[in-house]
Design a protein around this nucleic acid. Structure first.
Lengths: 404, 404
DNA sequence: GCAGTTTGTTTAGTTGCGGCACAAACTCAG
DNA sequence: CTGAGTTTGTGCCGCAACTAAACAAACTGC
């Protein structure tokens, strides 16, 4: 009897095989109607119809059968597809030096509710994550929505498969903290259903931007971003995050971008990490760096408001040149078809896009790989949405298995 | 009528969907028996049996039904699976500064016949490739085997999707030569059946080593190798070559590994390219570099025969340190689970494996990603076998579609 | 020689999906 | 306003690939 139940499940588990891809298309907004869903999936209209109906029955999407909608072209207008506003959500959380944020995120990267909060620099990750998860649980209670998982973004490399934070920057957490397990325990203890995931914030930013922001449609998306200190990178290949064999890929901070530059704790000199982060910008511009947890804001404000100042401008140009050198190195290695920049790098790009593009093109090996588009990140809470993507992934992979 | 034929084909084209994966398992030697084929595919014994029978009927593999074979364990012994020696082959070709080589390669990376040849440094790629293909066609005639495609390895980055050679090293070919089209034309003109493919030699080396050599089983395989001049890299992710969005990924030659090093044509200083190639080794060891087209051999011989000489040893250690720095940089970016080295780098590894591993571990960000295994390439004609892999790929993807 | 184990084979049944025909909902021309 | 043309949704049939289950075969070890 037990054996029979298990063997039967094997069959049911697979479900309709096009279900996952179909949901992903709606989720990322690439299937606004059933007609394009049909062509994107490469199946017949009959199959696409059945798949859409099944997703609707699962309470994930909405199929607008109302006939009189905007058409524009000839023929019978197609039913419109959209994520269901009252469908399930995931709990997304994010911690950084100056606070935390919890949110409920629905399909399509839609932020349903948020709860920001400050956090004293406590040494104990369990306490911080407990607070974050409690805030999320409260949101969940207030909303009354179903929760299918939880995701956390941390400013640290996260080693796989252990789920430990190797360098939790400015969080006063011990290196090697098992954040994934701690977060999972907090989630479970708060009575929140579904699995819990943890990832690096820049990785999750890249994932979010790929699905809902400036990275949409890119096949080889490179993302480089600063926090208050240091530089992180991420790569999304064919829609999946590439985090290497143990989660430590794209640690781009120690590319050499200035052979005569300042020494770095890694043992080298002139690393991207210490040459292009907010602290480097402020000191290069001969400004007094203020408190650690607002370096990013200080640098960004300075860049936007005093660009006419010679020191500021010179500092910006120096950093752009070094960033360009680093990006060119990455272009030579990864050959992305799009680059997106976050944090201070985003501000540097917007201060002088032509200079940055010129440096990258000049220092990458062939003009054509150097002419890769470089864009600023567009989502406002991208690492939060990215954390949600992590939690949505099982649903996107197999909606039936998760929701039944 | 036409419409009907096309629509019907859509169905037939798909064939048995597990056919491709099954052939790949036999091809790479991971399915020595039908029993492991069953478990590797994750299907029932019935399905695996049908799949194996179909591959046998297609003339690709051999199913040894002879009962009295070596067993060892309990239970009924499983039928052994192997590629069919008299099955189809592909034409593999390789050109480099000191000559060319044509070969017939069967499934499993088995070299059936080879025809080496010298080539004067002719400026015209069409002439060189014509000679190579003619040699291959002769082999084919002599063998009487069926040919299902052709692959070519060139010592140059090959831009996709155009198939042009951007930097044909020391071949005196114009940069940007449309080698893929030229090769395809030669193949067609020689009456050889099947599609023709062209790729970079280091990429193809990595592919060959991943499927049949030192890279077997690696999920994130990084390969770095020298030719006579310069350094190339390649990455195999989950069994597929990662060549970036336009074929130009893993151009690792211009990582900075020696800030005070010699200037490089790329505009930087101390690039991996000019600091760790055979010419760099010979000059660092204060030897007179001989003819360009034998630099690799000179350097390898010197390293193996005169390692006791202080100049040689110092040069080797200097190059190992710089190579280690470059590999550490790549480890930080790509986080591979295995690294394989070819050309002079392979010789350097074998000269002092501990030193190289120590440098990589020391200069990569976290010990655990730095402890990645570093191994020498093992296949003798790896880029030739890799070129064959390129040609086999359509068959591995869908055996039925190609062979019917 | 018999139990136990593992593998191959046969048969029946399920199912996801393509093909097809038809209905539905629009645009556009006149 | 009407009919032709176009595009999309739906119901029905059938196939092909797979699973499940029962049985047969070929070995080991006691």
């Amino acid at each position: 009897m037990n054996g029979k139940a298990t063997t039967t499940r094997t069959k049911l588990e697979r479900g309709r095989s096009a279900l996952g891809p179909a949901l992903e298309l709606v989720h990322t907004g690439r299937a606004p109607t059933r007609a394009v869903l049909t062509s994107e999936l490469g199946v017949t209209r009959a199959t696409a119809g059945a798949v859409a109906a099944e997703l609707e029955a699962l309470g994930l999407i909405r199929v607008d059968s109302s006939p009189g909608s905007a058409a524009g072209s000839q023929g019978r207008p197609s039913h419109r597809l959209a994520v269901l506003e009252t469908g399930p959500v995931v709990l997304a959380a994010q911690v950084h030096a100056d606070g935390f944020r919890a949110a409920l995120v629905g399909l399509g990267g839609r932020i349903v509710a948020t709860a920001p909060g400050c956090v004293a620099v406590m040494a104990d990750p369990a306490q911080v994550l407990g607070e974050v998860v409690a805030a999320g649980a409260e949101l969940l209670r207030a909303s009354g929505l179903r929760c299918v998982g939880a995701g956390l973004a941390v400013p640290s490399a996260v080693a796989e498969p252990e789920g430990t934070a190797l360098n939790p920057l400015h969080l006063a957490w011990p290196a090697g903290s098992p954040v994934r397990d701690i977060f999972a325990a907090c989630v479970r203890d708060a009575g929140i259903t579904g699995p819990a995931f943890t990832g690096n914030d820049v990785n999750l930013t890249a994932l979010a931007e790929h699905r809902h922001g400036a990275g949409r449609g890119a096949q080889h998306l490179l993302c480089v971003a600063t926090g208050h200190r240091g530089v992180g990178g991420a790569l999304v290949l064919d829609g999946r995050l590439h985090s290497g064999s143990s989660g430590l890929a794209l640690e781009v901070g120690h590319l050499t971008v200035n052979p005569e530059g300042r020494p770095c704790h890694c043992g080298g000199r002139g690393c991207l990490d210490v040459e292009t982060d907010p602290l480097a910008f402020l000191t290069t511009a001969r400004r007094d760096p203020g408190p650690e947890e607002s370096l990013l804001k200080q640098a960004g404000d300075l860049l936007r408001t005093e660009y006419e100042d010679a020191d500021v401008r010179n500092a910006a140009e120096a950093l752009i040149d070094r960033l360009g050198l680093g990006l060119a190195g990455l272009v030579n290695i990864l050959n992305p078809d799009r680059i997106i920049l976050g944090g201070l790098h985003r501000d540097l790009l917007e201060a002088d896009p032509e200079r940055l593009r010129a440096v990258v093109a000049d220092r990458s090996l062939w003009g054509r790989s150097g002419s890769v588009p470089i864009l600023p990140c567009t989502l406002s809470h991208n690492s939060l949405v990215g954390a949600a993507e992590l939690a949505w992934q099982p649903v996107l992979d197999d909606p039936l298995a998760v929701l039944t």
